[in-house]
Design a protein around this nucleic acid. Structure first.
Lengths: 345, 345
DNA sequence: TGTTAGCACTCGATAAGTGCGAGTGCTAAC
DNA sequence: GTTAGCACTCGCACTTATCGAGTGCTAACA
């Protein structure tokens, strides 16, 4: 499957052109634009070869050629030139990140927003899920009669308002007991049995309605083991309407539907595994509906334990070089900035 | 501007029909469908009158009629029949609300989701902004070296991770000082000067880098006065692609653009003032881009202090009766459920 | 042997022409 | 006041014609 240098150049030129115009590329256009010193006839011959090899597709006899999934794949693997992101954009990115570094959860949202503004495609990001964080502190605060806020501090804060029949005094005692028993433990290590043990202790030391106690323990357990409810954010979904591939409203609607369903997005983003930036082109995507899109995604880490994913969704003729460069930049800048601000645990 | 009973009936029939079909309504259709016992010719005469009065518009000579903004307005004010929401939908709504009642912030998101699933239109909701909540407690928790989490508990929890040069001991003392000075106060009452006063006290009692101290105080001030960053959620935006009014992708894109800009949404939603459900039809909308949409919005309260807004955005030919009924239902159900679970402060 | 000019051919897209039918306004009869 | 009837309008869908970008192939050329 080795391609002659000339074929490579021609394929590259065709794909570059197609990425720009979204119109089938003819031989004349290539012979004129690129200075390969070849006539359109020669290019035509080469294009016929490239089509036979599976890199190009001719939508109809007598139309120009369009890259096939394999063509894009070859392009991404070996043809694509490095894209240089402008200094201003980099500077802007840096300042945005610096401004948000104190709020990890927000950082990630911004990373997604930045990615979509750099690339002009739709992005999907997941907030870094904190894996098994150590419980630093548990707090119970009465915020109204019969209303208590439970606060669990790990590296982040989870809180939940509970409507529970308890008074100030019992509330304070309970907080003390919870702290004594739970702080310092990993959230994942806390089993329902453990909670039941604590419940027994509480039962002995405090006077509470049994019902209230059970309720509280349920809340505590739920809050601690809460699945962090991996937050997912979609940015710039509307960009889909911009490219001619989706001028068909029906199609666009199906994509939007897909993007509004968090379950889909979760699956989409969870399938990213490796450390490097990865593209899935057309049929390489697992989802039927994305088969004429491409997705480019990566894992990035926020410090030692947390990690998040970011995916860019665009038409197959996306500007891969730019997207790769953008993700790379974001990942590096986040690393840099966190390396600077965080000193391990 | 009084309309004869017959004209009212005809106008109502036309609008009902148009809401259903999105196609200009002809005289024959009305004379057949409604059993008014009138021929199409008579209806035609009445329609000509209604057009002259400004309630109907004829897109082209020899096409059926379409309601004008004034027509819709009249319909909403005096013609619309009450819509009865199905029992199953009501039951479903109730169970969803019950399941979320312990988490106010989530309740609101669900209210929006429910509204859009009931009406099948796009909804915009704002989280209830807590106005001037009393500070119940302030906490500082070391979560790593040089990393402190500041937690401010009002009726909700605000937290912020600060990267600050401080040790365990100073951290605890600082928390104590902050609590002593700030808890019990209204968040809005805390001025920057007040924070500076505290800063002086801290300066005397603790040994901290002056830089770290200033940083901390900034964080504290920011976190407390944080504009609650009124969260805004958009649900079911894609429904816009469903109605023929927006089969033009360009138009749809402009709407999506609008919906992705939180600033717009804020303005949109803030303009809702009254207590009752209100419709803005076509040109009545303040935003250029919504001039061929209608919005129906309301304020709803979550208990005594918090209040949120919810707006439904749809085509002018929206099912107003259904939308009104849906919002009404949601508002009532929320009231009911909160009345049950909350017992004042 | 590789390259290129030339030419006949294909076929989608656009424009122009045509007929249909839903709907109208008006008039005259009931 | 209501309605049947009729001539008229005009958007829409459909057909047909034209155009042109692009192709494959052949033959000539370096």
């Amino acid at each position: 499957m080795d391609l002659s240098d000339r074929k490579r150049k021609i394929l590259q030129a065709i794909i570059d052109e197609y990425i720009g115009t979204a119109e089938p590329v003819g031989s004349r256009a290539i012979s004129k634009k690129e200075n390969l010193g070849l006539s359109s006839a020669t290019i035509r011959n080469e294009m016929a070869d490239l089509e036979e090899m599976g890199y190009l597709i001719q939508p109809h006899t007598s139309s120009g050629r369009v890259p096939s999934d394999e063509g894009y794949r070859f392009y991404v693997n070996s043809l694509m030139r490095k894209y240089q992101i402008g200094m201003e954009a980099v500077a802007q990115l840096q300042s945005m990140l610096v401004a948000r570094v104190s709020q990890l959860e927000k950082l990630i949202r911004y990373a997604g927003a930045i990615a979509s503004s750099l690339t002009e495609y739709t992005t999907v990001v997941t907030a870094p899920k904190e894996q098994n964080g150590k419980i630093k502190k548990i707090d119970l605060v009465m915020i109204a009669s019969r209303t208590v806020m439970l606060i669990v501090v790990t590296r982040t804060v989870r809180s939940q308002v509970m409507n529970i029949d308890i008074d100030d005094e019992n509330c304070a005692k309970l907080a003390e007991i919870l702290n004594k028993n739970l702080s310092g433990l990993m959230a994942d290590d806390i089993s329902f049995e453990k909670i039941q043990d604590i419940q027994k202790e509480v039962e002995h030391r405090l006077s509470l309605h049994p019902k209230a106690l059970i309720d509280i323990m349920h809340f505590v357990y739920d809050t601690i083991t809460e699945d962090s409810e991996t937050e997912i954010y979609v940015n710039n979904a509307r960009s889909i309407l911009k490219y001619p591939e989706y001028s068909d409203v029906e199609k666009a609607e199906r994509i939007f539907s897909f993007l509004e369903d968090k379950e889909n997005l979760k699956k989409l983003v969870e399938s990213v595994s490796g450390d490097s930036i990865e593209a899935k082109i057309g049929k390489e995507n697992d989802f039927e509906i994305l088969q004429d899109c491409s997705t480019v995604s990566m894992n990035y880490s926020l410090g030692d334990r947390a990690s998040g994913k970011i995916a860019v969704i665009g038409p197959k003729r996306m500007n891969y070089a730019k997207v790769f460069a953008s993700l790379d930049l974001i990942s590096n800048e986040i690393d840099k900035i966190l390396g600077y601000y965080m000193n391990g645990e």
